[in-house]
C-alpha cells in the first residue's frame, strides 16, 4: 500500500465483556503500527468487564493526538453483539461502515423479565446503515472448531472493509495470540476476510 502515512481511520470495537474485543484490537493496533502508522488505542476495563457493555477505540494516521473516538467520528463500528451495535451507532460518522456480529447476548435485565430485547435489530440497523456487513461470526468460528475465535473472524472482516488487507496479518497474529491458538486464529481471520 502506498501513501500509507496519508491515510487515517477511527475504528470503534464494541461488545459485551468477555467477548474478546481487547485481543482483537491488540492485533489490529500492532498491525497498524508495523505498517508505519501512528496508532493509539484506548480501552476501558475494570468493573465493566463483568458482562457489561465494553468499547475499544483504535485510531491511526500520520499523527494521532486524542486516543478517544467521540460521537459522529468513527469510520468503522465493529460490534460483537447486535444490541451493542445499536447502542453505539451514534458514534459512527455519516457514511461510516458497520460490521455487526448477528449474535444476541441477552442482558440480565432481559433474562429476569425486567426489560425486553428488541426484535428485528439487523433490519433496523440496515435502514440506518444500508451498506452494513452482518453475519454470525460465532457460527463461522464454530465451523473452525472454536466459537471463541469469533473476535478474530470479525477482525478479518473489518480489516477487509477498511482496505487494510495488505498488512502481513498472519505474522502479527502469530506474535500477539497464544502459540496454541495461532492456526485457529489465522483461519478465523481468513474466514472473516471472505465475509466481505
Amino acid at each position: 500500500m502506498n501513501n500509507k502515512q496519508e491515510r487515517a481511520g477511527n475504528i470503534l470495537l464494541v461488545g459485551v465483556g468477555g467477548q474478546g474485543t481487547i485481543l482483537a484490537s491488540k492485533v489490529l493496533s500492532e498491525g497498524l503500527l508495523r505498517a508505519g502508522f501512528d496508532v493509539k488505542m484506548s480501552e476501558i476495563h475494570g468493573m465493566s468487564q463483568r458482562g457489561g457493555s465494553v468499547s475499544t477505540h483504535v485510531k491511526f494516521g500520520r499523527k494521532v493526538h486524542s486516543p478517544v473516538i467521540h460521537e459522529g467520528q468513527a469510520d468503522m463500528l465493529a460490534s460483537f453483539e447486535k444490541a451493542e451495535a445499536m447502542r453505539w451507532l451514534s458514534y459512527l460518522r455519516p457514511g461510516g461502515m458497520l460490521v455487526v456480529n448477528d449474535f444476541e447476548i441477552r442482558p440480565l435485565s432481559v433474562l429476569t423479565g425486567a426489560a425486553e430485547y428488541p426484535d428485528g435489530l439487523i433490519g433496523r440497523l440496515k435502514e440506518a446503515v444500508p451498506g452494513l456487513l452482518a453475519f454470525d461470526a460465532g457460527a463461522a468460528a464454530s465451523e473452525l472448531g472454536n466459537a471463541k475465535a469469533q473476535n478474530i473472524v470479525l477482525l478479518g472482516a473489518l480489516v477487509k472493509c477498511m482496505g487494510l488487507g495488505d498488512i502481513a496479518w498472519p505474522e502479527v497474529i502469530k506474535d500477539v495470540v497464544p502459540p496454541k491458538t495461532y492456526e485457529l486464529n489465522v483461519r478465523a481471520f481468513e474466514a472473516g476476510q471472505r465475509k466481505f
Binding site: Q49, G72, S90, P107, L108, A128
Partner: peptide, 20 residues
Amino acid sequence: KTQPGPMVSVILPPRPPVLC
C-alpha cells in the same frame, strides 16, 4: 458541533456489569 451518526429510536435494554 459534530454531526452524530445515524439515530434510530429503539429502546435498548441496559447492560450494566453483573456478577458472573
